[in-house]
């Protein structure tokens, strides 16, 4: 049992944290890749720019400026700093619900990124800067895992993390393999960079060795059971947390988001890569993204913004 508003805030902390981490990683990979002035490097920049939701593809021509804006621009609602500011503001609102250890990690990172030295630190070493931001976010998740009770609040936090992650990875795959793209990516360097953007290079190599193929990448990021950034892994966590949360509900009968999450999990669990390729990965991806959005809505209708008439004591 916890306040609906608190659950909402914890959920959004999870989402913003994950978003900030993903954006930091995309910028980092983009900046690293574009140290080479090759056609492939430009392609990587284009993927990154499209994956962060930037409508103007010409931004890829100046990756440093794009990364700087993505990191520190307070005006841009999608920037790392904005995401962290929103995560922290939510954390401030539920300060009584999260542990001091967890709060300190987030607060410290926020103070560093919004402090007077942030611009200089980025200019001095953008890669170090982004690396440290990612490391701090890992510390936050670690502190949350190690110090928060693994109860309802923690589950809402993780629901936010995994839903956001599933949607971000889905979006990245859509950019690379969706119908909107003229042709599939074949360049080895671009494919490696894609794996780096999903933090998947090393785990991928252990499964498929250095044989880097678009089909394997799709299979790994969509259907791998154990890799924490595969969409299958995310949906299985979402299902797990949701079914645990609905167990406490005093409303009888099956509720919305749990059913959706279970179905989505099963779809990914029993999917077959050959069939997917035959019917088109793009359509599959967009249906997954739609279902993630539906789970998000269902979550709100069930736990946060439910109609009072149904819950008043008789």
């Amino acid at each position: 049992m916890m306040l609906a508003r608190v659950a909402d805030s914890l959920y959004w902390i999870g989402r913003y944290i994950e978003r900030a981490e993903h954006m930091a990683r995309l910028s980092d990979v983009m900046l690293n890749a574009t140290l080479d002035r090759t056609e492939a490097a430009y392609e990587v920049a284009q993927i990154a720019i499209a994956a962060v939701g930037e409508p103007d593809p010409s931004k890829a021509a100046n990756p440093y400026q794009a990364a700087l804006a993505l990191a520190l621009d307070r005006e841009d609602a999608g920037s790392i700093t904005s995401s962290l500011a929103k995560a922290r503001e939510n954390a401030r609102q539920v300060r009584d619900q999260i542990t001091t250890e967890t709060w300190e990690r987030l607060n410290l990172l926020y103070l560093r990124l919004t402090g007077p030295n942030a611009d200089k630190a980025f200019a001095d070493g953008s890669s170090t800067f982004l690396h440290e931001a990612i490391a701090d976010l890992h510390l936050f998740k670690g502190a949350a895992d190690a110090t928060m009770s693994h109860g309802e609040g923690w589950r809402f936090l993780l629901l936010g993390v995994y839903l956001e992650r599933a949607q971000l990875i889905g979006r990245l795959l859509e950019v690379c393999f969706g119908d909107a793209r003229r042709g599939p990516i074949t360049d080895h360097f671009a494919l490696t960079s894609l794996l780096r953007m999903s933090c998947a290079l090393e785990p991928y190599l252990r499964v498929y060795t250095a044989d880097i193929q678009p089909r394997f990448i799709q299979e790994f990021l969509l259907l791998d059971e154990e890799f924490p950034r595969s969409i299958r892994f995310c949906t299985s966590r979402i299902e797990e947390h949701l079914s645990s949360l609905t167990r406490h509900m005093d409303v009888p009968g099956q509720v919305g988001p749990e059913r959706l999450a279970g179905r989505l999990k099963a779809r990914l669990q029993y999917a077959d890569m050959d069939e997917l390729e035959a019917s088109g990965v793009s359509a599959f991806l967009s249906s997954i993204l739609d279902e993630c959005a539906a789970i998000h809505r269902g979550l709100y209708e069930t736990f946060v913004a439910y109609p009072l008439e149904l819950r008043l004591p008789a």
Partner: peptide
Amino acid sequence: RVYMRTTTGLR
């Protein structure tokens, strides 16, 4: 009676 809105209904 005063209730608060929680994730599992009114308390």
